[in-house]
Design a protein around this nucleic acid. Sequence first.
DNA 1: GTCTCATGAAACAAATAATGTTACATGAGA
DNA 2: TCTCATGTAACATTATTTGTTTCATGAGAC
Lengths: 153, 153
Amino acid sequence: MRHDSRLSGVLHVLLHMLEAGEPITSEHLAEMMSTNPVVVRRIMAGLRDAGFVHSEKGHGGGWTVTCDPAAVTLDDIYVALGSPPVFALGHRSENPACLVEQAVNASLESAFQEAEQLLLKRLGAVTLAALAADFHQRYLAKRGTKKDISHAV
Amino acid sequence: MRHDSRLSGVLHVLLHMLEAGEPITSEHLAEMMSTNPVVVRRIMAGLRDAGFVHSEKGHGGGWTVTCDPAAVTLDDIYVALGSPPVFALGHRSENPACLVEQAVNASLESAFQEAEQLLLKRLGAVTLAALAADFHQRYLAKRGTKKDISHAV
DNA sequence: GTCTCATGAAACAAATAATGTTACATGAGA
DNA sequence: TCTCATGTAACATTATTTGTTTCATGAGAC
């Protein structure tokens, strides 16, 4: 299965937007994510609807963060993306008539649900601000130049 | 993403094989899983290599369980399948040069790893025998006929 | 011995879902 | 009014799982 990298991608550009402090165009964000501007708009649409970011048209337009990074968690972002499926593993049929398959599904499902709850709980414990702080630590540890912040492919 | 239903499917037929007590052909197993005999052989190959099942050619041939159901867990089966990817969510690039993306990946990865560990731990706590027992409970609760065991599509 | 049943494996086809691309409409500013 | 930038729909591409065909091989029935 090909995996869904939207959460990873959108967090990446969100942090860049926080660092930038000025509107960034879809095209620029697309470069950072090595993808297409339309893909960026598609992904960002959910965050815009959730009020986390704002988009502006015309000259000097682009995307800006409009939420408090300390108040928004990775789980919030995940939900804004539409809460995409977490697992690559699943059942063949959701409501099987076969009692054996029912037993199998019940057992698997409880395990998957527990794991998903833990995952979302962990995502809910990390704020955008915490992620940004983690980045700054890495930045200092590397003693890089200011250029490293803007972006290295 | 299209999800991988091999674990669910193989557990399903394993329980049927335990109930049957005699070799079942790939074709019969395929009917139970609503799939193709070749797909069944492909999936079962891993279990055969792991020594959990045995296959016999010719008349009266087919697949039989050769392990102790009380000693094999769902995690063992998962591993025998080749430990397929658990999550549908992932990173865009595994080793990004961008420090921001590194910070994002690190945070996400620790959350995913924890969730995966919990999942596998839960799967490791359930044996095939326990699953079979669960089935028998469901069977009794339904007061069905013996026919229900063999299979209902 | 030969026929049928069954697995083993390779190669190919179909289906599906994520991602990429093109095209055009709309609105904001120079 | 020209350019920049987003919004959206429609379509193309790609990756991956699943399904299918085909042929070889071995085991038992006759």
